[in-house]
Design a protein around this nucleic acid. Structure first.
Lengths: 152, 152
DNA sequence: TTGGATGCAAACTATTTGCAAGTGC
DNA sequence: GCACTTGCAAATAGTTTGCATCCAA
């Protein structure tokens, strides 16, 4: 895309980065937009998306995708794994790993050049577990495709 | 959604499932549509999506999402990990794991109830590595958000 | 015969893009 | 002043949905 472009500073982009660096919430583009609207009443969603893409490209933030219809963004550029609550859709950082052995295992098993990996854990977060007599939370459609080790 | 619905047989759904069971290619909805068009000249994309969702719901197939704009589908319902080529976008099955220790590690570190996990490995597939003097393949935009253990 | 399944087209949603005006360097 | 950025609105792309008709049980 616009890989080699020289980027100017902009209050908008700086604010987006700041917001992401100071939250653990992994917000969506829309959430970032809503939050920054207070400071920039004329802010547009297009600008938010444009800047998020620039920041991702610069490796300052990360784009998270695991099954909802929309992406989330992570201001923590340091490699780490995630836990995704299948009830409320929230994303939590995990403080384990990285497990380089996994990559060795993968490399040994296939002939491809393995450069990186990503692990997502799924389940029910403490928050949802507590308010659990109601069982089904206001969920943003959970995920499929995960390795269930203990099927119940 | 339509969880408890009783589903009739349909040639279309059967064919979609057959196709997915007999390929290792993890095709997209569009690719499935194109392939089945030969047998069902009047097939519609809507039908393909509807049936894919039913099959996912029935745990007969899995929906894969790792960063492209579109989803892929996996006829292998047995838990397994994937390797995604960052150059050509192809998805390969890996024959390692599942690593239940990971889940224990995660459970210990957070208080959430961890039910499942998923691992994706990223890199360059053998195919792309070979035709590599040309370097940039016809890529469908690679992924972000992965743990790079050895930055080169 | 009844309610799910299909084809078709229109609707939706998240994201991207074109353009004229604004702005950092 | 040049080129990047912005806001706005229109455009995309992938997926979903409404509806009349079709078809499996």
């Amino acid at each position: 895309m616009n890989e080699g472009k020289i980027h100017r500073n902009s209050k908008q982009r700086t604010s987006i980065l700041e917001l992401l660096k100071h939250t653990k919430a992994h917000p969506t583009a829309q959430e970032i937009f809503d939050a920054l609207r207070e400071d920039f009443p004329h802010l547009s969603l297009g600008t938010v998306y444009r800047n998020l893409n620039i920041l991702v490209e610069q490796d300052q933030i990360r784009k998270l995708q695991y099954g909802s219809t929309f992406d989330r963004f992570d201001g923590n550029a340091v490699p780490h794994y995630h836990f995704i609550c299948e009830s409320c859709g929230r994303v939590y950082d995990l403080d384990i790993g990285p497990f380089r052995e996994l990559q060795n295992a993968a490399t040994e098993q296939c002939d491809h050049t393995v450069l990186s990996h990503k692990i997502d854990f799924f389940g029910i977060c403490t928050d949802c577990r507590e308010k659990d007599s109601i069982h089904e939370g206001t969920s943003t459609s959970p995920v499929g495709e995960a390795v269930t080790l203990e099927k119940n």
